[in-house]
Design a protein around this nucleic acid. Structure first.
Lengths: 208, 208
DNA sequence: CGCAATGGGGATGGCATCATCCCCTTTTGT
DNA sequence: ACAAAAGGGGATGATGCCATCCCCATTGCG
């Protein structure tokens, strides 16, 4: 049983991180805290295996190096046995190093963290590595979401729109198939279904 | 058909905002952009009814008043016909006013924005009001998420744990019933189911 | 031409969730 | 002691998504 804690003041981000953990960990429960006092309270009450901390908490100056590291240090000292991940909105290699020296196992920039990538980070730190992920805008992509699509349909559409020019649809079906552990024909089915829905709505993006 | 755009560089936050829009709007499609150039490209290609912008985009200094307002101004000028919401991580009443003068219809702090609250903001601006929502930590609550629970079970558990002391469970069932448009007995059923699952896991929080 | 890729579907079983109905026992409050 | 509240379930149909299998027509290319 894994016990994880997410310390982050932005509600939607905290919920998103908690959802990522839920999806990535089996047999776990995930707690969330919005402030440093609440985090300390939880860490005193209970033992955690994994703690994700955003150093920019309310009551501290998010632009102050000292304040940010103080938050990280406080959390790490309150749970010395846990694996600590620092997740931040800003992007600073020096701060990453400082966090590492404080005992953190990973330093991740929110800008470079996409859905489903947290498990990769966890695998990395399981191997004993320090995982550092700075902002990555080379892979910047457009997003499109259509409410009437199911998750699978959304997924294959996103992959299709983000594919490199020249890549055949078949290849994308195969890619999704291996990634999702399903049949390539099923991926194709989802794509067709999604396409049909968008056609009916008259909202088919260019490049189909 | 509503067309919405979310301009935000943090992937998880952008997806969360897009999900909020999907849940809150009927017959809409939602696009996302990670950078200002991508946002401009989308705004030039297509017309949007609603644009949500985080002024702290890559390539700009998130602590610089000038840079932040420049982002907001650029976006608003690129889509003068849309309703513009500014969503930010920092908390600044002066900046809110400046955004209002630039033509924004709402200024929302991420710290104060919870799941399901975006529709309330949209209703407000539909009435022609300027919606301002600064950080709100009075209502700071603990979060707990258990992976084995269904959304409904999670929902009623969260409401139950966040209820004011003295409130009867019955009242919470009724509250969820009216909010979700279901039967109070069903809410009670979800609560019981959730409780049973946590009991089996030996992870029942205090206060049941 | 033949073949691969694409576009456009129908039908299926399995499964989880939703929302509702019903039953019962125990605890708590007044 | 009596009623209200709470704990602990079983069973149900409806619905939607997942994953798979099948069919067909059209297009492009060597």
């Amino acid at each position: 049983m894994h016990r994880a804690l997410v310390v982050e003041d932005q509600n939607l981000m905290r919920l998103a991180l908690m959802a990522e953990l839920r999806a990535g960990l089996r047999d776990c429960y995930v707690a969330g805290a919005q402030t440093l006092p609440m985090a300390k309270q939880l860490l005193d009450q209970d033992q955690f295996d994994l703690v994700i901390t955003d150093p920019g908490l309310p009551g501290f100056d998010p632009t102050s190096r000292h304040d940010r590291l103080h938050v990280v240090e406080t959390i790490i000292e309150a749970a010395p046995g846990a694996a600590h991940l620092v997740v931040t909105g800003s992007d600073d290699e020096d701060e990453a190093l400082a966090c590492r020296l404080l005992g953190a196992r990973a330093y991740i920039c929110k800008t470079g963290l996409s859905q489903g990538e947290l498990p990769l980070v966890l695998k990395q730190i399981d191997r004993g590595e320090f995982s550092i992920q700075l902002s990555d805008l080379d892979t910047a992509k457009l997003d499109l979401r259509f409410p009437t699509l199911t998750p699978r349909e959304d997924e294959i559409l996103a992959m299709m729109m983000h594919r490199n020019t020249g890549t055949k649809r078949r290849a994308v079906f195969q890619e999704m198939a291996t990634k999702a552990g399903i049949n390539a024909a099923s991926a194709e089915r989802y794509y067709k279904q999604a396409r049909a829905k968008l056609l009916k709505l008259g909202r088919l993006p260019e490049g189909l």
